[in-house]
């Protein structure tokens, strides 16, 4: 299903929408929103979520097309199927929004998040942190005699798992980017 159809609200052709539209089940969806990179556009998107009482689990935004001045907002949100459809339709109403993609329903997609974790400690804990970082393929991007800053990339779940392991080993600070996501395949 192409993005244009979603923006126009005709979602009924997606097999995913065979699910009951008015069920109470909370679903988590990852939406990719392509917008004009102009002043205030992020405020419009965020304002829509807060004004209408929708959830934001994660949000990332950056310009992805410098010549076309397009930014891509990736937002992970939660709600019943009806609310998710409303969110997409409401996003589609925002004038600078070009496309709304529901990566959760449109087919397989990849999701990645980057996090930086500062772990301080010495002795065995320090060795163990380094060993686990290796298992998780986290890189050391800063090091002192009593601390590391790890850089890790992966799904949010993987980062959660790594953070949980680092906590008893001296995790003192963490920064996460939020989810970036793309559909798999060619188009």
């Amino acid at each position: 299903m192409n993005a244009l159809q979603i923006k126009k609200g005709s979602t009924k052709h997606s097999a995913y929408n065979l699910r009951p539209q008015f069920s109470d089940v909370q679903e988590t969806h990852t939406l990719a929103v392509l917008v004009d990179n102009e002043a205030g556009v992020l405020a419009r998107v965020i304002g829509l979520f807060s004004g209408r009482g929708y959830n934001i689990d994660s949000l990332t935004v950056a310009e992805v097309d410098h010549t076309g001045h397009l930014s891509r907002i990736t937002v992970v949100t939660r709600g019943t199927p009806q609310v998710i459809e409303q969110i997409k339709a409401q996003l589609g109403r925002i004038i600078p929004v070009h496309e709304v993609h529901d990566l959760t329903t449109e087919g397989p997609s990849v999701e990645r998040e980057l996090a930086l974790l500062k772990v301080s400690g010495d002795g065995d804990k320090r060795v163990e942190a380094l060993r686990l970082a290796d298992i998780f393929r986290a890189n050391v991007v800063d090091s002192t005699l009593s601390s590391f800053v790890f850089e890790i990339t992966g799904t949010p779940e993987k980062i959660d798992a790594f953070a949980d392991l680092m906590r008893p080993l001296g995790l003192v600070e963490m920064a996460r980017t939020g989810v970036a996501a793309l559909a798999r395949g060619i188009a």
Binding site: K8, Q86, A89, Q90, G92, R93
Partner: peptide, 11 residues
């Protein structure tokens, strides 16, 4: 004309 009106309140 507004897709967000569809199924907003009444299926």
């Amino acid at each position: 004309i507004d897709p967000s009106s569809i199924n907003k309140v009444i299926p």
